[in-house]
């Protein structure tokens, strides 16, 4: 199993992602620069957090037009797993690889805090390390994480099981009080229609060490490692 992290000018959580992937996969992922037009042959492509192009114009907008994103779209089309975290989620929505859009937080402020997430499905390669309905703790750190989709799109992604995670209370209750950014239907992460592309605002990669914020995010990476274990090295 192999992974590549795509970085843009302004990416800044690739180090966190490298550590989490290395721990779970037993080897370091490749780093691919945005100006490259080809991706190495890998089982997992990750777009990490940060402020690609300073988030100028709109978060993720310019990165979505980078040369490398054409290659990412091709691989996604072929069924390769693609994970976008935080700014990566914004890039994937701007590139139309995921439905909806991420707007300025309802509170208008950057927010860095721990939240609880509810796992909506446990039958995807990204979430097979969790149980359905499991609640885990993991931090968010963003200014533009307010998920929005128009009513038609929302009905579709809800109907097709494309919601990956929802913000919730420690007990799993939903509600505005537990959603840090005003996201519609408390949505924290979504899949594409084929389920091989996942974007989420929270940072599971920053919750993979017991002494540094706990292990809430670890099952995501362990599950991916297990799902890809059969894949050629």
């Amino acid at each position: 199993m192999t992974a590549a992290i795509v970085t843009f000018p302004g990416s800044n959580r690739e180090r966190d992602m490298v550590m989490a992937l290395t721990r779970a996969f037993g080897k370091a992922p490749a780093l691919v620069w945005h100006r490259d037009t080809e991706l190495p042959k890998v089982d997992l492509i990750v777009i990490p957090g940060g402020f690609a192009y300073g988030d100028y114009l709109r978060a993720g907008a310019m990165a979505a037009q980078s040369p490398i994103m054409r290659a990412v779209a091709d691989r996604a089309q072929q069924g390769v797993l693609v994970l976008g975290v935080c700014n990566g989620f914004q890039v994937l929505t701007e590139a139309r690889l995921l439905p909806g859009a991420l707007m300025r937080n309802a509170g208008l402020k950057f927010v860095c805090r721990e939240v609880h997430l509810r796992v909506e499905r446990a039958d995807t390669p990204f979430t097979q390390g969790y149980r359905k309905g499991e609640i885990f703790k993991c931090p968010v750190a963003h200014h533009d994480g307010n998920y929005f989709a128009d009513s038609e799109t929302l009905a579709r992604i809800e109907g097709e099981g494309q919601v990956a995670f929802r913000y919730c209370s420690p007990q799993g209750d939903l509600g505005a009080a537990f959603t840090p950014n005003g996201s519609i239907n408390d949505i924290a992460g979504v899949y594409n229609d084929k389920g091989n592309v996942l974007g989420l605002m929270p940072h599971p990669e920053d919750a993979t060490e017991k002494l540094l914020g706990g292990l809430g995010g670890a099952p995501l990476f362990a599950g991916l490692a297990e799902a890809l274990a059969g894949a050629p090295a």
């Binding site: 800044n12 959580r13 180090r15 966190d16 550590m19 989490a20 957090g49 402020k109 950057f110 927010v111 860095c112 805090r113 931090p139 750190a141 940072h203 990669e205 920053d206 002494l211 540094l212 914020g213």
Partner: peptide, 14 residues
């Protein structure tokens, strides 16, 4: 105040 600061990026904040 400090929730407006990303205090976790780089993954080394103990």
């Amino acid at each position: 105040i400090w929730e407006q600061y990303d205090h976790l990026v780089m993954g080394d904040t103990v």
